[in-house]
Nucleic acid binder design. Structure first.
Lengths: 158, 158
DNA sequence: AGAATAACCAAGTAATTTAGTCAGGAAATA
DNA sequence: TATTTCCTGACTAAATTACTTGGTTATTCT
């Protein structure tokens, strides 16, 4: 019952795009540096995000990636599903073709679990998450320092 | 975001024990045969279940395994956690020692997800699950045949 | 036109995890 | 003592994850 870093990477990268949504495209090299993720690995992840219509790639100098929908219309579930990290907790992938009785005994349990997970991840959008986060930051008076190590984030928050 | 067969195996095996809770011990060899799981693999799983106080092993002829608590007091979460399939969805395992800001940005998200999953799995006990299942079976008038391929289960249900 | 920039793509590899085997022991019962 | 069953540790095969390497194509700037 674990989420791979692939999922985490994708979500954090998408949040990064969401933060700079108004400012145009942002390069994978930037994300790579800011988050300490290998560039090529990011490229693989973004290939899937792109194929699923979540982001649009812009080539050439000044290019990069942009969200293809406003942050309020992209849920965490969308991201997780897009990169292939499906929330299929059942053995037979949703179908009821697990033939021998005992498998089917627990089938509904895992199916329900999967639904709950999906519901939750769907209820959180990039926008709603950042909003909540912003509130938290303000509440905590996050002006102590520029310690928090993501400069591009700081700009937007402050 | 997937549950390994390890977790599934453990849960189905525990349900098996729960069904025969009144009838005394049941051997791993039986479970192995009924469910088509390798005996040695089951032994490994039960070693962990035993160490976590969920089952008690009884050696010698006529021995086997029994639940060490009534089925109503064992949740699916207990089982999943016992076999090491933790519901730790965060990177840093609950601690907040993911230093660079972006990690901590999503930290709460994964933590909340983990809580939701755990809550759900905790809300289902071996007893409550079987009860629900029984109701379903009765409602569907499961008398059509003895088709359902688990004889020991059939005995109890019928 | 040419160089720089960045997305795109395919394939291979290293590390980790999962799922399982194998070979034996130790306690209880008959 | 022989059988049954739990119990243990170490070892292996397959799959998955997390990368790396080495390119290509499209776009822009000079």
């Amino acid at each position: 019952m674990r989420l791979s870093t692939k999922g985490r990477y994708a979500v954090t990268a998408m949040l990064d795009l969401a933060i700079h949504h108004e400012e145009g495209a942002i390069t994978l090299a930037d994300i790579s540096e800011a988050q300490g993720i290998s560039l090529s690995y990011l490229e693989q992840l973004f290939a899937r995000l792109r194929k699923n219509g979540l982001v649009a790639g812009i080539r050439g100098p000044g290019g990069g990636y942009r969200l293809s929908r406003p942050p309020a219309e992209i849920s965490i579930a969308d991201v997780i599903v897009a990169i292939g990290e499906g929330v299929d907790v059942t053995l037979c992938g949703g179908k009821t073709d697990c033939q021998d009785g005992e498998r089917c005994l627990t089938h509904e349990l895992w199916q329900q679990l999967g639904s709950r997970i999906h519901e939750f991840l769907e209820s959180v959008t990039l926008a709603s998450f950042l909003e909540r986060k912003n509130v938290n930051l303000v509440v905590r008076r996050q002006q102590r320092r520029q310690l928090v190590s993501i400069p591009r984030l700081q700009k937007t928050v402050a």
